[in-house]
Amino acid sequence: MKFDLDDQQRDFASSIDAALGAADLPAAVRAWADGDTGPGRKVWSTLADLGVTALNVAEEHDGIGASPVDLVVALERLGYWCVPGPVTESVAVSPILLSSDERSAALAAGELVATVSASAQPRAVNADFAGLILVSDGQEVREGSAGEAHDSVDPSRKLFDVTATGDGWAADVALASEFGALAVAAQLVGAGQALLDASVEYAKQRTQFGRVIGSYQAIKHKLADVHIALELARPLVYGAALSLADRTPDTARDVSAAKVAAADAGLLAARSALQTHGAIGFTQEHDLGLLLLRVQALRSAWGTPTAHRRRLLEAL
């Protein structure tokens, strides 16, 4: 079977690229890390205008009710551009946890941003930015309040202890967790692609011993390995999206396979990008460092690679 995106999905990805490419995301991420979420809020407003925040919200709550494949199309681009904030939690997970709650409409419109504390991710990301904190425990969901803040390897992704408050309601917590892992996998593929693109461009310009470094076999092979890893991870991510759409018995296996492959590809892209750029890649002035830290943070989000490998082995 050959799988490919249709014209509408390609156009959707292109519209996201056009909007985020003009938004100066590196400046927004740096400002966010320094506590100024103003530029980031404008980015989220753009996402709402594009319909990204409504993708996983049901149509009866003014959402789009899109397929998981459409969700992956969008989240891969958000990963590519390193969008700050609780992207996975608000766009992919919260619509499922809110279920038929009337606040789903505000989520779809981008008027409400939510974050989540769950067994796969006990501390809530960017709880100081979110207007709603959801705490999932077993089959029940409750609202939460933010407690102590903790630094993350990615300064723009502060983590917060949360305390559940109020009455709970039933929701498909297991399904929400699968969407969380899938969403992170899609962002890792996007971030890995951004790192590869930046490395290829740099290798065409940087010279050493009178030659551009991209002409050396060592660099060519290193970047080719990253390309192969991403090309192997991407179909697993889309395959997991199809599995989620059909609710197949192998959904958990497919999601874990996607998360593991995407995490490994993202890590390889990060290491290769840093080796290609050299020390300049981790200076404050270079945008590459933002992606390097984002990949490292996302690798353990919504289940560590070890946890997903264990689940994958149990399913085989």
Results as ranks from 00 to 15, higher is better:
Ala109Thr: 09
Val93Lys: 09
Ala118Lys: 07
Gly40Asn: 03
Thr248His: 04
Ser100Phe: 05
Thr276Ile: 02
Ala18Phe: 11
Ala186Ile: 04
Asp17Val: 10
Asp151Cys: 11
Pro39Phe: 00
Gly51Cys: 04
Ser300Gln: 08
Gly65Ser: 10
Gln296Pro: 01
Thr276Cys: 05
His61Cys: 05
Asp17Ala: 13
Ala31Val: 09
Leu288Gln: 02
Pro155Val: 05
Phe160Gly: 06
Tyr216Met: 11
Asp225Thr: 01
Ala176Gly: 05
Lys158Asn: 12
Arg234Ser: 13
Thr251Ala: 10
Ala146Met: 14
Asp49Gln: 15
Phe209Met: 13
Lys204Glu: 15
Ser104Thr: 12
Pro122Gln: 10
Ser199Pro: 04
Ala22Gln: 12
Ala54Cys: 09
Glu201Pro: 01
Asp101Tyr: 09
Thr283Phe: 00
Glu148Phe: 08
Leu75Trp: 00
Pro305Met: 04
Arg234Glu: 14
Val52Met: 05
Leu78Glu: 06
Leu175Gln: 13
Gly192Lys: 03
Ile16Arg: 04
Asp24Arg: 14
Arg77Tyr: 01
Ser215Gln: 12
Gly79Pro: 02
Thr283Asn: 11
Val135Gly: 00
Gly110Pro: 10
Arg206Phe: 11
Arg103Lys: 07
Glu285Tyr: 10
Gly239Trp: 00
Pro305Val: 06
His227Asn: 15
Leu134Asp: 10
His150Tyr: 14
Val184Lys: 11
Leu267Phe: 14
Leu292Met: 00
Leu292Ile: 01
Leu182Ile: 08
Glu143Gly: 14
Glu89Leu: 08
Ala149Ile: 10
Ala130Tyr: 10
Glu285Gly: 08
Ala174Arg: 07
Trp44His: 14
Leu112Gln: 05
Leu47Tyr: 03
Ala245Met: 12
Arg157His: 13
Gly138Pro: 04
Asp264Asn: 14
Leu20Gly: 04
Ala58Thr: 10
Gly192Trp: 07
Glu59Arg: 15
Arg103Pro: 05
Pro95Thr: 10
Gly147Val: 12
Gly85Ile: 02
Val153Pro: 06
Gln193Tyr: 09
Leu175Lys: 10
Glu140Pro: 05
Ile280Cys: 06
Leu236Glu: 15
Pro305Lys: 06
Gly65Tyr: 04
Ala92Asp: 10
Ala171Cys: 08
Asp264Ser: 14
Ser104His: 06
Val57Glu: 03
Glu201Trp: 03
Ala270Phe: 02
Pro305Asn: 07
Asp172Thr: 03
Val141Tyr: 00
Val52Tyr: 11
Arg309Gly: 11
Asp128Tyr: 04
Ala66Tyr: 01
Leu175Arg: 15
Gly266Arg: 11
Asp250Met: 07
Ala297Tyr: 13
Leu242Arg: 14
Arg309Pro: 02
Ala106Pro: 02
Phe209Leu: 15
Leu47Cys: 08
Ala186Glu: 07
Asp264Arg: 14
Asp101Ala: 11
Gly214Leu: 06
Glu201Lys: 11
Glu148Gln: 14
Arg30Leu: 06
